[in-house]
Computed example of a mutant assay.
Amino acid sequence: MEETKKNIQQIDYTLLFLLFILMCFSLLSIYSGSGQYFTEDPTHFVKRQLIWFVVGIVIMFGVTVIDYDFFKNLSFLLYGTGMALILLVAYSPLGVFRNGSQRWLDLGFTEIQPSEFMKIFLIFALAHLLYKITTERKDFDIKSDIIIVAKVLAVGLPPFFLILQQPDLGTALVIASIMATMLLMSGISWKILLILSAGTILGIVMLVWLYFNHFDLFTLFIKDHQLDRFYGWLSPYEHSAGYGYQLVQAMRGIGSGQLYGSGFLQGVQTQSDRIPEIHTDFIFTVIGEEFGFMGATILIVTYFLLFYRMIVIALTCNNLFGTYLVSGIIGLLVFQVFQNIAMTIGLMPITGLALPFLSYGGSALLTNMVAIGVVLNVNMRTRHYMFQTEESG
Rank of each mutant, 00 (worst) to 15 (best):
L358H: 07
Q388L: 14
T344P: 03
T382A: 10
S363H: 02
G352A: 05
M380F: 13
L366D: 05
A371T: 08
R381Y: 08
T351N: 02
T323E: 14
M380K: 15
L333S: 02
N318G: 10
S327P: 03
Y385G: 11
N340K: 09
G322D: 02
V374M: 13
Y385F: 15
A342S: 14
L358R: 12
I330V: 10
I350T: 13
G322A: 01
L347R: 02
P349K: 06
T323W: 10
N368E: 09
L347M: 12
E391Y: 13
L365C: 07
F335A: 02
V374A: 03
A354F: 11
P349G: 03
L325A: 04
N319Q: 14
M369K: 08
V378K: 08
V334I: 12
M348S: 09
G352N: 05
M380H: 13
F357P: 00
Y360V: 05
S327E: 11
L332K: 11
L365G: 11
Q388Y: 15
F357A: 03
V378M: 06
G373R: 08
M348Q: 00
L355D: 03
Y324D: 04
G346Y: 01
V326N: 01
S359P: 00
T389K: 09
I329R: 10
A364L: 03
A354P: 14
V374D: 08
M348A: 12
L365W: 12
